[in-house]
Each structure stands twice: as structure tokens, then as C-alpha cells.
Design a protein around this nucleic acid. Sequence first.
RNA 1: GCCCGGGUGGCGGAAUGGCAGACGCUGAGGACUUAAAAUCCUCCGGGGAUUUUUCCUCAUGUGGGUUCGACUCCCACCCCGGGCACCA
Length: 859
Amino acid sequence: KKPKYYVLEMLPYPSGTMHMGHMRNYTIGDVVARVKRMRGFNVLHPMGWDAFGLPAENAAIKNRTHPRTWTNNNIGEFQRTLRRFGFSFDWRREISTCEPEYYRWNQWFFLRMLERGIAYKKKSRVNWCPKCCTVLANEQVVNGGFCWRHEDTRVEAREIEQWFLKTTAYSEQLLEDLKQLEGSWPDRVIAMQRNWIGRSIGAKVWFEVESEQSTADSPQLKSEEKNAGRQDAGATSKIEIFTTRIDTIYGASAIVLAPTHPLVALLIAGTPEQAKNEKKLAEMKVSSVKTEDIATAEKDGFFTGRYAVNPFNGEKVPIWVGNFVLLEYGTGAIMAVPAHDERDFEFASKFGLPIPTVVTPGEIGNKGDQRPAISDQEAKKESQKAAAPFTDYGYSVNSGKYSGLKSEDAIERMASDAEAQGFGKKETIFRLRDWGISRQRYWGTPIPVIYCEKDGMVPVPDKDLPVLLPANPKLTGEGESPLATDPEFVNVKCPKCGGPARRESDTMDTFVDSSWYFYRYGDPHNDKAPFDPAKAAYWFPIDQYIGGITHAILHLLYSRFWCKVMRDLGLVKHDEPIARLFTQGMVQKGGVAMSKSRGNVVGAEEMAEKYGADTGRIYTLFAAPPEKDLEWSEESIDGAWRFLNRVYRVVEKHADRVRAEKGYTTELAEGPQSAQRRETQDPGARTAPGAPTEKERELLRKAHQSLQRVTQDFEGRWHFNSAIAQIMELVNAIYAAEPLDEGVRPAVQKEVLELVTLMLAPMTPHLAEELWEMLGHKDGLWTVAWPAINEELAKEDEVEIPVQVNGRVRGRVTVPAGSSQDEVMKKATADPGVAAHLAGKTIRKVIFVADKMLNIVVG
RNA sequence: GCCCGGGUGGCGGAAUGGCAGACGCUGAGGACUUAAAAUCCUCCGGGGAUUUUUCCUCAUGUGGGUUCGACUCCCACCCCGGGCACCA
């Protein structure tokens, strides 16, 4: 049976018209799909539409039409262009995410996640884009606080009830499984994901708040005021901090809370500076949102007037509020160790906090775990004048019984001790947040839940799926969700009690659609389930996924998350959906990526109109290796066009002469053609019998050498540009051998011309099909296998070997291929150029690489 | 600041330790043509010697190193692009 091969390009969002940037993406995928098909794989190469989304809704409002109309028109355009470029998609498997047949399964998945607590609702501060009038996921907030689609618009913070998917439940797996992808995914994508998930291994430590003289108003924290689970319910007068450097705790000169930390108000209440500090706090809360660039903002803060106790040494530590501490990360509170942290150092320097040294670099000559040469006393003196913090690992000093330990050991011991004594806990935290999927928009998947006055939140039963979008919404682009304004949609009966109820009016983030769409291609018309697990088991994981680097985090992280959820639901057995990922470079014009807003697009249709689709295809393959950005050049396209014409002319010229000859097999081989298989096939079968002429030998050699290299370039690292260069060389050689009817028999001529055709077939299918027919074939190229390399014919009879003396080329000798070192030496020393450099010297060493080079080392 | 990429002719790029610049673009010259387009052929990194044949030499961001031999491997640095960024 044929092995499967699933090659997929990221599905497009159908907006506007397609440009050559799109075409490059699909061309790469199509070449791979066609090559694999020719090599005997059962290839899945589908196409679909990421059809939900905001631009459709905005365009509908602007043009007074329906988002569906706008979207489907675009899909029609896209389809036309893709067909024109001859991409070998299996259109029977086409999907469109805005169809109920598709999005009902988004709802189905949502219900399964709801059952398992993966989907949940919470009131939270959300990112609100005033231009989109909707909530954005953390991943959609860019440049430190701007909307990913309106890069000039700052995201606002709002408190809204939102649906979330618990991506954080998979933080560890999402991070760990990246190891499986190493080598098969681009390093930078893995690095970006790793960075995004952001694991920190450290510990939480609880600092007891010291009660002031007045015992009456010890700060109390009600559990619901701090995010659930963060604060030990019993430890109401404790501050919890997170640190990755517990070994530096003896150097903590302050506890610093985020301005939005719920304890802050309680702490400053009743202190002498209360009024002043409350004013300051209000300022900081505002400025932390408005500051142009939060990352570079100057350190600011104030002393609350209260103290906490360092559980390790019982020292009193002042409690501060600082603008550089983030509520969202860790516990929203830190211990400031100025001597060993950049930010703490800056903060302490500004506000005059002490900077005690508790870690020193290991001195040279200092052995193992022994104390470094510096004493606690000296360290104390040193620390006061330090100009910069020492943030590396070293040896603990000034740290009680831990002094002298290596930082790594101190971290381990101190964390263990803290845990044993009940004032701390080892903890790993992640930067990754849960995925907020609620959108207050129309053109998306309705979230399938109902709110009943009596029963509360009730999931829509599976039998009532899909929850259809209302056909004729009122779209204004403002205010609450358009679905909320449609009484027919909103007012429903409770599925449980039949009483009056209200339907959820938010829709899902469109990244939900694209998180699992590739599974649907394997079983696109299933109306019982999102897909048949057996079919998914056959096709998955995707052998090759191709798309832009823009989706390195969002789409790919969500897809990986979705796969793990489906695995836990028992739908799939694999951990990762995508075995290999390829990120192609952008097509640029004037140094920037093609985009409609920049007005620098080269339209796919106009390109096809002017030069033909094949020229467009081969140009994008030839101009640069696929992973690199490609600067569009009108002149270079002429070159690609000229080349294809050159090929056409030479085949046309000789077609009559060779048509009747036996050609390449039209049987597509069963199973992949391995190297072994190629060798066992009769390689000379297609070459005319009898001794070849010199001219024939040269042509055949060049042809099979080209085939060798082109095969490698297609299978290996996708060097399409050098594959094309190789075919160009072959075509040049054919021209140089003209007139072909003299000294080249028709059978040989046919073999060479057919090889050119077959090698071009994956890249320029239209041209190749026409040439194939001209060469006398009735069956289309679809039925043809990748040609077998004839190793014998590819071999050189003679090779020119450069002769080096002390590493410099001093001459060249021509010898029969496979000549021994002695034979080459004999010829080389006779070469006058070489001899001149050998004269009067002693030969010390000779390095010989057969058929490659000879290096004579003299002294 | 941290993490990824990448620096080779006028330009896009080739060369996975073995002749640096394949192939293409641009440019120059020639053939064909009444002419133009198209097409075909030749040349095209710098410097020097020789002058119509070739030889020498310098060149793959910079400086070191490993090696008989380095665009390629190692170390340090410079520049460009991208991602993350007060993440404790």
C-alpha cells in the first residue's frame, strides 16, 4: 500500500484578492505535493477558508451587505485564482469555517471542554480594543499594549465576564513537547513558543506582616479579593512573593507589591502617611496604563509605612509599592534584592534602600563548595559601593548557615527548608495565560450556552447543535454583541426546566476555527462527529505544514493545545499535530512585505495575465530559497519567462522527430521509490540500444546528473532555486548540442527532452503537460512516476582535478574517473605549473581525494 | 537587555571541510534583420604582470584559532533583520 503524505499550507482568510505572497506559499506546497505524488505517496493536499472574522463584518457594515455575501464572494475570487495557478488541491475536501457544518463542531468541542472544566467563565480585566469594539486575547496585544490589527490604538483595560479555555492546564506539556519538534520545526518558532510559555522554576515565600502598635487593623485579606488559589486562606496577614532566586533572600531589603495588588489598600490604611500614599497609588494605577512604553518607564513607588518579617532571619523588611511589579505575573509581589537584580538595584538606588551583598562570584582557585575568599564582613563593606548588581550564580555570603554554598545548592536547600518550616513552597510558574475566546461580535461561532434564572448556566444539549447564527443581524460595529440585540436569538427556553432563559450572545475567537481545521480535511462531510478518529489516525500528524512566520505563536500554539485536548478526549492518539513545519519568507516590494494597505502588491491575477501562471510559479521558486524573504523584481521575471520559452521552443522544434519513440513509463509506481528500488530498475531501458555517440553520452550524462541533483533538491532541503538552475544548465547544454538531428538518435533526444519535462512538472505543471503531449503522450502527467536516475549514465569518464601545492591551486590535470593517487601524482608532477612550485622543495605529505583534488605539501 | 536568524560581485543568489561567485538579472560587444522586437553567441569581482595566451595576487562583515586545505567548524567582536521585553 502507498504510504500517506499530508502536506498543508495554512488556510487563507478570504479578503480582497490574492497577491504573489500568497502564491509563493501555495507554490511551495504544490511542488512538494506533486513530487510526493510522483514518488508514489498517497498525498493529501487540501484547501479551505478561514471564513469567520472581523473584516467581513466591517466590510458588511460599510457596504450594507451581509458578511456571508462578502465572504463568499471573496472565496469565489480566491478559488478562481488558485485554480488558475494550477495548485493540485483536492477540492472535494474543501471546507469553509463559517458554514454550520463546520462551526457546529466548534460548539461541540466547546461543550466537551466545558464538561471537563477546560472551558470556564470568569470576570476579568480584559484587553479591549476601542476600534475593534471587542476583547482581544493576550496574544493579540502587541508592542506592549497595542491592538494587533490597529497598531496605533492602545488597548484599554475593562472588567468583563469572559469565556476562557484553560491553556495553562497544558503549560508544562506545551513546553515539554517542543522537544519532540526540535529539528523538524524552525528553531526560531520553537524559541518563540518557549519564550511565550515562559516557565520559571522557583519558590513562593510567605512574609508575615508585622502588626503596628494598633492591633485593631491588622490587614485582612478576604479570599475572594485576591485571585483564587493565590493566597493561603489561613495566611491573611501574610504577603506571598515569588522568586527564582530564594538564595538571595538574606539580601532582601524590601517587599514590593504591584500597585493593583489587593493588599495595598489594607496596608496603607491607618498609617500616618495614608492620605498621601492613597493619592500616589491612584496616580500610579492610572499611569501604569497610560505610559507610552511601560517597559522603559522610570521606577516609581512609595513606602507603605509597614513592615514584614523575613522568615529566614527574622529581620524587619519595609513593604513598598512599585510600578515595576506586575500583578499578572507570579504573586504580584516580590522581594527586592538590589545587590543581585537589575530592577531591584535601580529601585533601591533611587529610594535609598540598602544594597547588601549575599552572593559573590566564585574566585579562581576556590574549590567546590568551599567558602569563597571573601568574608561576610568584607562583603558587607563592598556592597555599599557596588555600581551594578551581580546577577549570576556564585557563592552565598552573609546568608547565615547557607553562607559558602553554591547558588544552585543554596536555592535547593533554602527552598526545601522553607517548605519544611511552613513558610514557603517550591513552585513553577508560567507566563502563559488562559485563552480568552469571547468576542462581542456577530461573524463567529455562537458560544453554545444558555442562562436560566433558575438553573443558572446551562450548556446547549448536543442534539440542539448547531446553534445557528441569526440570518439577518443588525450590525452597527458599536456597543454590545450584535447577537444580544436579536430577541429571537437571545430569548429561549431553558433546556433543563423549560422556563424563560437567555442565550449567550458572545461568539468565539476565530482562532478556534483554525485550531483544528486540518483534522476536518480528513473527513470533511462527517455529520456525526468532527471527524472519524480512524481517519485522523491515518492522516496525522501532518507531514509538512507550510505557512508564514506570523503565526509562529498564536495559531500554532492554539493548534498544539487543541490537539492535546482532543487526545485527552480520546479522539486522537498523538501529542503533536504537526510533524514538520516550514515557514516561508515573505514576498516584498520596496523592502517591505506585500500588503494591500501599503499598496505594494503584485496581484496574482495580473501576473497570470501578463506572463502566465507557470512563470509566476517558477519565478517565486527561483528568485530565492523558500525560507528567505524575496524582493520582487520585474526584470528577473523576464528571465524566468525567457527560460520557459526556451524550453518550449526546443521541445516544439524536435517533437515531430521523437514523437514515435518509446518514452518514459506512464505507470505511476506503487509505493515510494527508494534509492534501492531505483538501482534495481533497469536503468538503460529507455536508452536506445547500441553504442552511444560522444554527443549522446554527453547529453545523457548531463541529463542524469541534473536528475540526480534535482531529485536531491526536492527531497532534501527544498533548494528549488538550485534545482531550477540545474535544469537551466541542462537546457543550455541541449542548445549547445544543436543541431540535435546530427549525431543524436531520436530515442536519446526524446529521453533528454522528457527528463526536462518531468523535472519541471512539479513546478510548472501547465507547461509540462503541454510538452508531454507534444512529445507524443496520450495520458496526462498525473499518471507519471518520477523518473529513475541512471547512475551509470551520470558518471563522468574523465575528471579535471585541481592540483594544489601547500593549499594553493597551481595546476589542473585531466585523468580518467577513479584514478589512483599514484596516477594523478605522476601527471601532476609533470605539469609545468605544478613542477615550478615543487622545484627544490621536499614533498612532506600528499593529500588525495579521489576525483576531487590533490594537495602536495612541501617544505 | 535576552532569544533567534543573517552578512559572498552592480543585483537575486550558488557552493553541507576540497577549483569561491553555479544559474539568473542588469550591463557591454557581436550575429541575424532594411530597421526594431524577439532570438542566438561571447565577455562581465578588484589589483598587477604579460598584451591578442596566460600567469601572479587580493577578495565570502572584522580579528584570532583548528586544519594539508575554511564562505563552511571553534572563539571574540561589529553591523543588519526579526521575536520577547520591568516575567521577579
